[in-house]
Amino acid sequence: MTVAVWKSRLASVIALIQRYPGIVAAFGFISGLASFVLVDRQATLAPVIAGILLLSWVWLMFEGLATRVFARSFGRKIPEPLLRYVTQMIHQESLFFVLPFFFITTTWNSGQALFTGLLGLIALVSIVDPLYFKWLAPRRWLYIALHTLALFAAMLTALPIIFHLTTTQSYNLALGITVLLSFPSLLVTFPVQRWWRGLALIGVTLALGGAGFLLRSWVPPATLWLTEATVTTQVDGQNRTPGKTLTQVSASQLRQSGLYAYTAINAPRGLQERIYHVWRREGGDEERIALDIQGGRKAGYRAWTHKRNFPEQVVGNWQVRVITDNGQLIGVLRFEVTP
């Protein structure tokens, strides 16, 4: 096919999009919902979808350069509405791709509910054109915030699936890349006209990274979630199955046989991860026990801890917090010890 034919067909497509701009927005919304359904029903498709998303984010980062190359090669500019709709489509695909993961992995009675709720809110904004184009896009700082959060969430989900990185590695890498890529956007939005503004911009960027690191426990581990969790007095080690689930246990029973915290954790295939069961009484840490898990089993990797050494005072409300190596919360088991 000759270059002239390519130019003619491309011109026809651009003319069609200019005439019916809603086509691109509708495609972004439908493809985002398709990603949601595909990942929710067939997790093996997640690496393919995640790979497409990463490529689309590369386009987004080099959008300005790509448009200039396109203009020189084809002799005409890409229409501004088309660029806006492409960006909107990438936001929609990213957010509707990651939301199933975060909804599953969120511990809703913790600070993680704020992070996932915010993702849900900006996903809603991305599919409502009046909100996206008339309210969000003109507020450049808010637009960059949405862009940055969507990129961060997409990488948290995609990196463990594609590269089999641990949750800690994925979080640190996603945070570093997000902060690094946000700096040029901040530079364009807030031009550096004096030296002190440059220092302030660097300070804001570093503060963004610091806040992301300190608030990591508020971010759900996107690809790790509990498929089964129970507190019990016995575990069948041969069949790796727990006994009767307990919400209350007497102090005498506790001292006689101890207590098991049994968890089955779903993780991407090929992932090896160290997690911890943190036993706590009335908010204070009592014991922290490490477990190594492997991903790939549909029902989750089954592991448990057996606590026998309890303090003199055991009566009260207890928790077993299941956390990653960098402190992200996977889930909480609760039980009460009675006199």
Rank of each mutant, 00 (worst) to 15 (best):
S126Y: 04
K134N: 12
L99C: 02
Y20G: 08
M155P: 03
A113E: 01
I330D: 01
A303Q: 12
T263G: 04
L291F: 03
A15K: 14
I78P: 00
F97P: 05
G258C: 14
R194A: 02
K244C: 08
V13K: 12
L173S: 05
I30F: 13
G300A: 13
Q294G: 01
W279S: 01
L175S: 08
F96P: 02
Q18D: 15
R139L: 11
R216F: 00
G283T: 00
G243Q: 11
S12T: 14
T157N: 06
L114Y: 14
V332D: 07
I122F: 02
Q328H: 07
F97E: 08
A267C: 09
T2N: 15
S257H: 13
L329T: 07
E273L: 07
S170P: 05
L180M: 12
N317V: 09
G176C: 11
L121R: 05
K244Q: 15
V235L: 12
P21S: 07
Y301V: 01
T223Y: 01
S73T: 15
A46H: 01
G120A: 02
L38P: 10
N309P: 04
T166R: 08
L246H: 02
R281Q: 11
V231F: 05
L206P: 04
Q112C: 00
L118Y: 06
S217Q: 03
L208S: 12
H306R: 13
W135I: 07
F62N: 08
L226Y: 12
T105V: 06
R255F: 13
F36D: 06
L55K: 00
V235P: 10
L180D: 01
R9A: 15
E228Q: 15
V192L: 03
T168W: 12
A113G: 04
T324F: 03
L201M: 10
G258E: 12
S35G: 09
T227D: 10
D236R: 02
P242D: 09
Q234W: 11
I90V: 13
R197H: 15
G176P: 01
T205Q: 02
A11Q: 15
R269D: 14
H306N: 14
V337T: 09
G243C: 13
T230S: 15
S217R: 07
L146E: 03
P100L: 13
G316K: 10
L291W: 03
L124K: 04
G283H: 07
R288K: 14
V235C: 11
A71Q: 15
T44L: 13
V278S: 03
M61F: 10
A264W: 06
G28E: 03
A267W: 02
D236C: 01
L83Q: 04
A211H: 01
L271V: 15
L82Y: 11
G331P: 03
R216T: 01
T2I: 13
D236S: 00
S126Q: 01
I162A: 01
P242L: 11
L246F: 10
A154R: 03
R19Y: 11
V179E: 06
R280V: 12
A251H: 08
L187S: 08
L114Q: 06
A15N: 14
Q193T: 11
L165M: 14
A211Y: 09
T223W: 09
P191S: 08
L291M: 13
L121C: 04
T166A: 09
L136D: 06
F97K: 07
T178Y: 00
N109A: 09
G327I: 09
S31F: 15
A303P: 06
